[in-house]
């Protein structure tokens, strides 16, 4: 389980996160949603220690990450898989080498086992046979998927995905959503997905956190998000006129 307690984060004198607290349980897909620029990525980066919040605690299974010494931090981090919003693939390495990197850094696998693992991860993101491409030769969506393959290569206990399916076509997006859900349930890992995509929200959101203006604005599951009366949530979920109409018919039926 990951627990964030009272996270405050500023850049210079611009405060981005205000007292955000949340719990993310294992075996569940936890979503962080919210409009662009509201602090979702910053929150995720605080949780993995890439940003240092001025105030607050990040607990991984009860242990405070921020006050750990370097080597325990590093040990914990080898259990974290993260997909960055911009993929962040190592551009001097091929797709295969990218996925192999954490394996050769942290395991004692033989060449054959590693190859096996790489092929397995690539297959799960529908990229079999793309081993020898360089990131610059991959499309944006392919890079995202390689990023996911790299994030899951070490069988992480904690998986962070920053917009895993932005830039993907609806069909591939569903493949990725399902992949994330499947490995979450299969290996009982704690998964945290940042997304804007309402399809994903409805498809995989077990626990949903809505971040607005740097605050935790709303929390709930995918059923309650449709029936919530919170105006900001409604503005987010039913953004288009068409969806607003659907909402009013839904409301009408309920009465």
């Amino acid at each position: 389980m990951i627990e964030a307690k009272g996270i405050n984060k500023s850049f210079g004198n611009q405060q981005v996160l205000f007292d955000v607290s949340a719990q993310f349980h294992p075996g569940k897909v936890n979503l962080i949603i919210g409009q662009s620029g509201q602090g979702k990525t910053v929150l995720a980066k605080c949780m993995v220690g890439l940003h240092h919040p001025e105030k607050g605690e990040i607990l991984f299974n009860g242990k405070d990450f921020l006050s750990m010494d370097k080597s325990s931090q590093s040990n914990l981090r080898s259990e974290i898989g993260m997909l960055f919003q911009g993929s962040a693939l190592f551009d001097s390495m091929t797709v295969e080498e990218n996925i192999k990197f954490p394996l050769s850094m942290f395991t004692k696998m033989s060449k054959k086992e590693m190859q096996h693992r790489v092929d397995f991860c690539l297959e799960r993101v529908n990229l079999s046979g793309k081993n020898a491409l360089y990131p610059s030769e991959c499309s944006g969506g392919m890079q995202k998927r390689v990023g996911i393959a790299r994030a899951i290569s070490l069988n992480p206990k904690y998986l962070f995905c920053d917009e895993p399916n932005s830039g993907l076509d609806p069909k591939t997006a569903i493949v990725i959503d399902n992949l994330i859900r499947d490995i979450t349930y299969e290996y009982h890992i704690t998964t945290l997905v940042i997304t804007h995509d309402m399809n994903s929200v409805m498809e995989i959101g077990d626990n949903i956190l809505f971040i607005h203006q740097g605050k935790k604005w709303w929390e709930g599951d995918r059923k309650s998000i449709l029936t919530s009366d919170n105006p900001e949530i409604n503005a987010f979920v039913f953004a288009s006129e068409f969806m607003k109409e659907i909402r009013s018919t839904l409301k009408g039926q309920k009465r």
Binding site: K45, F84, F106, L154
Partner: peptide
């Protein structure tokens, strides 16, 4: 520097790599 701004260094750090 390019690795820094494209978050490749962050990606390494998150993995626990020095």
């Amino acid at each position: 520097g390019t690795m820094r701004i494209t978050e490749q260094i962050d990606a390494m750090e998150v993995m626990g790599v020095n």
